[in-house]
Design a protein around this nucleic acid. Sequence first.
DNA 1: GTGTATTTGTTCGTATGTATC
DNA 2: CGATACATACGAACAAATACA
Lengths: 78, 78
Amino acid sequence: MDAVDPHDPVPLYQQVARELRNMIISGELAPRDALPSELTIQQRYQVSRGTARRAIEMLRDEGLIYTVPQRASYVAER
Amino acid sequence: MDAVDPHDPVPLYQQVARELRNMIISGELAPRDALPSELTIQQRYQVSRGTARRAIEMLRDEGLIYTVPQRASYVAER
DNA sequence: GTGTATTTGTTCGTATGTATC
DNA sequence: CGATACATACGAACAAATACA
């Protein structure tokens, strides 16, 4: 069972967001840790860059991460 | 709170420049005193040499320091 | 004077996110 | 979706001048 499945009715960006969210909640990614880059996400889940960006945007809106322009996105504290 | 923080949206070279600038303004570094070497800056703030050089370049552009090739940068008089 | 270490100068390559078309 | 350009940042390598034992 792939983590991200194109046949799943759930939008890809939501699936990707869920994966990343799990990595944060599980502690695999600790506060202030950098998230995988957009390119890494593309390759890992076989999605387009737009999809990767949208997933990241989702987590940012949730307050789970913050993005430092020209650098990377990081897991938020707390 | 680190003096130079990768999670701060402010570009690293600007953060480093700010630190050095403060050392000059506070008088910790007097006119004609040598600035920390590029290597020292790298190690002290955990940044790359390019970033250290760019910070120095900034202060030079501001007229706060001058650089003697193959020697060091010094705090400007006045 | 000689050799070594240090320091700045310079260039190249890679990676990242942002913006635009 | 792809392609490009840009800004930031890191790393490596080498050159050249200087400092020092």
